[in-house]
Design a protein around this nucleic acid. Structure first.
Length: 354
DNA sequence: GAGCCGTGGAC
DNA sequence: TGTCCAAGGCT
């Protein structure tokens, strides 16, 4: 049912919305899907160049399904949340094998694809197929929490449930594609997290938070928790030809599946690194040289990265070529390394300041 | 339900 | 400089 909220929003959208984002061109389910996955927990400006490059390399779901996963991961390098890339690749195969290369149009079937949950399924249904489906991303949560003065942190199930109910109630039958884009645009450009521009808001008159002068109270903030501190060694092994030893990380965990510098257990002391290196990497090394370390903050913990150079004294033959490889710096960077490791190899002074 | 998974922008 | 968190989903 179309209510006044949707009408006002659509009128505003016609004049002030974002109508020319890359995934709005040549719109199809594949392009919408890839954009939605990239946009999870990631801002539009960050996604745009990745989306363009990804589409140039993988124009169709068949191109993606047939590509090596390493190729997909290297195009994801720097975007973060690399499980998204592995799931995207897996889901592309699912679309080809289980759905004949055509995306299903109902949310339930879409949610059977790896990496697509309730919100992303709804976004694809509305954006690609023009069918009615309510979305609830970070922007919509903020808009609705303020409009209805919904207290509490949206991470709580009860709060989330109320927001979904409001989202469903406001979603119109007509112009669903524009409406979903409109409410996200309002959240991104007007109803922003800090200092919202309420005077420019088309639904100001009905907004309970604005009426109370309490927009800053909504949505409620996440409970604070201390981040644990962790430490690790990052090994820079360089042979006489200037090649660096890289190690593929395990499929799960931080930077899962990415190539990176070999990591040694922090339980090893500096004098034990040569021996650890021989055990773990099969390389004979001389005395370690410590480089200035730096701290990198993740969502859930702080990681002290301590780089260490270890001169290779023996031969540089690798025993496990699927896990280990020697590459020059530019070749390594083309693989797609984790961002802090990339900075460490390109600008060691900058990395130390992180 | 709660923890985990990245990076960069905004403040 | 540190904190928060953004077009969430999986385990």
């Amino acid at each position: 049912m179309t209510d006044r909220f949707a009408d006002k929003l659509l009128t505003w959208y016609d004049q002030h919305g974002r109508h020319d984002l890359p995934w709005h061109h040549d719109r199809n389910a594949y392009r919408v899907w890839v954009s939605e996955i990239m946009l999870q927990q990631t801002q539009v400006a960050t996604v745009i160049p990745y989306f363009e490059a990804f589409m140039a390399r993988f124009p169709t779901v068949h191109d993606l399904a047939g590509a090596p996963v390493d190729d997909v991961l290297s195009h994801w390098s720097g975007l973060g949340y690399y499980a998204r890339a592995r799931n995207l690749h897996k889901a592309a195969k699912q679309v080809v094998e289980e759905f004949g290369g055509k995306f299903p149009q109902d949310p339930e079937a879409l949610e059977s694809l790896t990496g697509i949950g309730r919100s992303t399924a709804a976004a694809i249904v509305a954006q690609a197929f023009g069918k009615r489906a309510a979305i609830l991303d970070g922007n919509v949560k903020r808009v609705l929490a303020r409009y209805h003065a919904v207290p509490g942190w949206p991470g709580q199930t009860a709060v989330l449930k109320r927001l979904w109910e409001h989202a469903e109630a406001h979603t119109p039958e007509e112009r669903v594609t524009d409406y979903t884009q409109a409410i996200m645009d309002l959240g991104a450009t007007v109803c922003t997290r800090s200092r919202p521009d309420c005077e420019a808001c088309p639904v100001k008159s009905g907004c309970q938070a604005h009426a109370r002068g309490e927009t800053a109270l909504y949505p409620g903030s996440r409970p604070k928790k201390a981040k644990p501190e962790k430490t690790t060694w990052m090994v820079i092994l360089e042979d006489s030809d200037g090649r660096i030893l890289l190690e593929r990380r395990p499929p799960s965990g931080i930077w899962g599946g990415l190539w990176s510098l070999p990591e040694l257990d922090p339980a090893f002391g500096p004098e034990e690194l040569s021996e650890a290196c021989e055990q773990q990497l099969g390389m004979n090394c001389g005395d370690p040289e410590l480089i200035s370390g730096f701290r990198h903050t993740f969502s859930h913990y702080h990681l002290h990265i301590q780089p260490v150079r270890l001169p290779v004294t023996g031969n540089t033959t690798v025993s496990d070529s699927d896990r280990l490889c020697w590459l020059h710096r530019d070749e390594a960077l083309a693989l797609g390394l984790p961002a802090p490791i990339r900075s460490l190899l390109t600008e060691p002074e900058q990395a130390a300041l992180l």
